[in-house]
């Protein structure tokens, strides 16, 4: 316990960096995932193809490989970002595939009558998707989206393992490897840090779920 209290600032800045990664990656993946879900139900076959192959690639490829590719492959092409952004964008791309699948299942769960009614008052595909179907779909997918987002928070530790300096995982590595502290108390602190993020996030999503639930 002493180690945790003595290095509290390191843990706290670590948590802040982890939260920062999750905030950016979460927002980006929700955006990309929603657009992809739109692609996957669109009337144009090439767009459906893009959506399907994106999901197949990122769902079946380990996040580690995605991150390695971005961190070591992109510089070869002359694309250089700060490491933080490679990690965050990689995490967002990976998560967007799972977001897309969650939202698509939500679109499928909206009763067909809704879309039929939208069509019969003359709305086109884009209009009926964005103003009738998606608003309802997003409400029904809060629970699965919630577990995707919580999985993303946990996956942010992998981004940390790539040496995005100063996140919670990196704090654990610094203390155990660089300063030679005993691993058990240090890593217990890291675990508590992650639980302090994931458990409230779970509770928050539960509340959100009750608030926006659609009664059918």
């Amino acid at each position: 316990m002493h180690v945790i209290l003595a290095n509290l600032p390191l843990y706290l800045t670590g948590m802040a960096t982890t939260l920062e990664i999750c905030l950016y990656a979460g927002a980006l993946s929700l955006l990309i995932g929603t657009i992809l879900a739109g692609f996957r139900v669109s009337p144009l076959p090439p767009l459906r193809g893009v959506g399907t192959s994106w999901v197949t690639v990122f769902r079946n490829c380990p996040l580690t490989v995605v991150l390695f590719f971005m961190a070591f492959g992109f510089p070869e092409l002359g694309i250089n970002f700060p490491y933080f952004w490679f990690g965050t964008v990689g995490l967002a791309l990976y998560t967007s595939a799972f977001v897309c699948e969650a939202i698509r299942s939500g679109i499928n769960s909206v009763p067909p009558g809704q879309a039929e009614a939208a069509r019969s008052i003359g709305l086109g595909f884009g209009q009926s998707l964005t103003s009738v179907v998606l608003p309802q779909a997003v409400r029904t997918v809060v629970p699965p989206l919630g577990s995707v987002i919580i999985a993303m928070i946990k996956n942010s530790a992998i981004v940390g393992a790539f040496g995005v300096g100063g996140d919670l995982y990196a704090a654990g590595i610094t203390l155990t490897s660089a300063r030679g502290e005993a691993a058990l108390p240090v890593l217990t602190g890291v675990v508590i840090g992650y639980l302090l993020i994931t458990v409230p996030a779970g509770l928050l999503l539960g509340t959100l779920e009750r608030k926006v639930a659609v009664l059918r």
């Binding site: 530790a157 691993a183 058990l184 890593l187 675990v191």
Partner: peptide
């Protein structure tokens, strides 16, 4: 609630201790 990478790191560092 904990990341799997932490679980692996935990096993590799704490068990030898």
């Amino acid at each position: 609630g904990i990341p799997v990478v932490i679980a692996i790191f935990f096993a590799a560092r704490v068990l030898p201790e």
